[in-house]
Amino acid sequence: MNIGELLRSFPELTVTGVTQGAIYALVALGYTLVYGVLRLINFAHSEVFMVGTFAALFTWGLFGLDSNTERPSIGVALLAILAAIVVAAVTSAAVALLIEVTAYRPLRHRNAPPLAFLITAIGASFVLMEVAGSLTVRRPFGVPALLPSKPLFDIGGWAVTPTQVTTVVVAIAMLVGLDYFVQKTRAGRGIRAVAQDPNTAALMGVNKSRVIALVFILGGLMAGVAAVFNDIKTGSTKFNVGFLLGLKAFSAAVLGGIGNLRGAALGGLLLGLIENYASALFGSNWRDFVAFVALIALLMFRPTGLLGESLGRARA
């Protein structure tokens, strides 16, 4: 245990933890949305994210930016990031929808048991990951330098880089936007209705298939945005980038209470922080270990996560 290291780097660890947490939270939303409506762990969601990382890279290629080019001006960089967000979000949403239509919908039409869904999820995940692996020759791809690495400000060790600010600001905007959509709009009410009681929702005239498609699209959009910032943060991407990140994001969703949107945000944030503090305390090798210990310990005491399963069948 290295408590000195934790105290020394506390501000830095917190800032990177929040940034990492923002990315987890965005991906976790995809798991939680689908779970809330279908009671299904969408294992293929990690690949939705993975496709997003490559879509972003492709967009930057169109700007003439690659891992060898000079850092562009701030204006161009922000424009490139914005474009990548749009392209990656749309691509990821399209992939998510494709998974729903090809791997899940046919099973729903046959009223297949829940475990069958799990297997098609695994199958879809294999297909996407392996096709991406073949297309990219399984090698890592570098991400162009976009934003300056010099901190925007540094107040008593609390230094924050432009990348970190952008990540957190965009993530918060997405979270607030999604929350508003689900809580306040008609389509959002439809989602909540199906999550709480699918049969009664149909009696109200809600088209369940459309709601499910919408949920996959929303989750895909969030994962696409997360993919862009993960690219920028880690500086590279690879065909299997989704695996561990997806696992972590899923853990984050469970931590907060799967099926609960605000829970996913909270879980992501917590997981990001725990990981960073843990790597200072026990060394970076033990980062993931501590993350899982924390998850399991929490579930022992709060078996449905921190905030419970509120989007889903509320247990009144």
């Binding site: 009410r189 439809g190 209705a193 709480q196 009681d197 809600v206 509320a314």
Partner: peptide
């Protein structure tokens, strides 16, 4: 009854007019 437990009375009624 099939009342949506996590929605307010108003929201439940709005669900009735969903179409």
């Amino acid at each position: 009854r099939g009342v949506f437990p996590g929605m307010t009375v108003q929201e439940n009624l709005d669900m009735g007019a969903y179409t």
